[in-house]
Each structure stands twice: as C-alpha cells, then as structure tokens.
C-alpha cells in the first residue's frame, strides 16, 4: 500500500515538474497522468479510461494563476484510489473533484514561499553577480512545489484508501446510479468553460456546424477536427485583412 501511494506521488510530482521545468506543454493533465498512474499500479487500461473521462470534465480547467481546481493532484489521487480499490469511473470522478479543490491550497502556500524567500534571495544574488545561485533559484519554486504536492498525494492515497472503501460501500445503490448518471452530464462543464475562450456571437454558426456533423453525419472526433481545419482555412484566406491605421 505504501509503495503504491509512493508511486502515485511520483506521478503527481512529475506533473508539477512538467509544468515548471519542462515547458508546460499542456500534458500535465488527467489524460496523460492517469495512464502513468495506471501503468505504475499495474492497470494501464483503467488508467486510460479514468484519464480520458476526467479530461472531458476538466477540459476547460486551465492551470494558470488562481485556478478553481488543481488538476494534477485531483487526477492522480482519484486515479490511484480508484485502481487500488477497484472503484468505478463515476466514483473516481466523485473523489477527484473535492481533492482538486482542496489541493489549490498547496499552490497558495508555495506562491507565498516564493515571494517571501526565493524572490528576495534572487535580488541578493543579482547584486553579487552570483550566477550559481541564480541557476538554482530559477528552479527552486517548482522544486518545493513538486515536493509538497508529492507528500500531500502520498498521504492522501495511503490514508484515503481504507476510508474511501468504507464510504463507497456505505452509499446506497440509487445514489451510486445517480453519480454514474451525473458523470455523463458533467462534461457539459468542460464545454462551458472552453466556450469562454473562443465564443463570439458571430461565430455561433461554426459552433452549430461542429455540433451537427457528429449528430447527423456520424462524424468522429478526428473527422470533425479536420473539417474544422478546412473551415478555418477558408475563413483565413477569404477574409480581407483589416489594416490598422496608425
């Protein structure tokens, strides 16, 4: 059990380091981290399914500044507990949401450490031209963050396992079915958040085209995206340039 919790915490720390040290290439997400958890815990298939499902719900949750949900912790803890305790995907999602919320606290603590400790130390290093200190200070914030998240995930998985099993067993069947149904409508949240980025009244027709292609023509996700590329190209080449005058 402790070994499994440790393996899950490694994935959580990796997720942090991906963002901090490896260029934040948008892959510290459930869809990549959960399969890693699954691989380490010996159930890759379940990891992929949970990762894909969580990604759909959290599609819109973006990891910048003050975030409503901490995706890395939420997905690794939930996926770890689900695989260890043989939980359903719906139950994993139910765990992931509160865990993600709680974990945002750690981010706040870490940002406080950075502004109180690392930032003034950098100023000192700059005054003395100490390039060695600058080298490690530029990595320090993420290192403490990875460590704190790793420890939190280790504790949550090792202590949470027994508790989760007891709680899940105590839930009546009708509520479990309800949660399972709820997990099917929850991706609407991800879509709602995504629309914030790009929605513009004049683009509503493009949204409808995207909706109608799978609905009536049976297009899959790849086919819809490729059609979208074609439409965007038409838009780009047919729209005249609006030159700024200044």
């Amino acid at each position: 059990m402790l070994l499994k919790a440790f393996l899950v915490s490694l994935v959580a720390a990796y997720g942090r380091l991906e963002q901090g040290w490896m260029g934040q290439q948008m892959i510290a997400r459930p869809i990549w981290l959960c399969p890693l958890v699954g691989l380490l815990l010996g159930d890759l298939q379940q990891g992929i399914i949970i990762g894909g499902s969580l990604e759909l719900i959290w599609a819109g949750v973006v990891q910048v500044g003050a975030t409503p949900t901490e995706v890395v912790t939420g997905s690794t803890v939930a996926c770890g507990l689900a695989i260890i305790n043989n939980l359903s995907v719906a139950e994993a999602i139910t765990i992931a949401i509160p865990v993600g919320l709680l974990a945002t606290l750690i981010g706040t603590i870490n940002n406080t450490i950075t502004i109180a400790v690392w930032s003034p130390m950098t100023n000192k290093a700059v005054d003395h031209g100490n390039t060695k200190a600058i080298w490690w200070l530029g990595l320090a914030g993420c290192a403490t963050q990875a460590l704190m998240y790793g420890i939190a995930v280790f504790l949550a998985v090792s202590a949470g396992s027994a508790a989760v099993q007891a709680i899940i067993d105590g839930i009546p069947q009708v509520i479990r079915d309800g949660l399972s149904n709820a997990s099917m409508i929850l991706p609407a949240v991800g879509i709602g958040i995504l629309m914030q980025f790009s929605f513009d009244k004049k683009f509503v027709g493009f949204f409808l085209v995207g909706f109608l292609l799978p609905t009536y023509m049976g297009f899959g996700s790849v086919a819809t995206a490729l059609t979208g590329v074609a439409i965007a190209l038409i838009y780009f080449f047919l729209k005249p340039n609006e030159v700024e005058d200044d």
């Binding site: 599609a59 980025f197 949204f207 996700s221 979208g228 729209k239």
Partner: peptide
C-alpha cells in the same frame, strides 16, 4: 480569429460526443 473558428467547430463537435 481563424483559430477561434477552428476552436468553435471542435467545441461544437465535442457536445454530442462527450455529453450524454
């Protein structure tokens, strides 16, 4: 703007595929 057009088509397409 063209990127937004593409995003709108993809988001529209996600609705029937992921929300049940």
């Amino acid at each position: 703007e063209s990127a937004k057009v593409l995003a709108m088509v993809v988001i529209g397409g996600m609705v029937p595929q992921i929300v049940k």
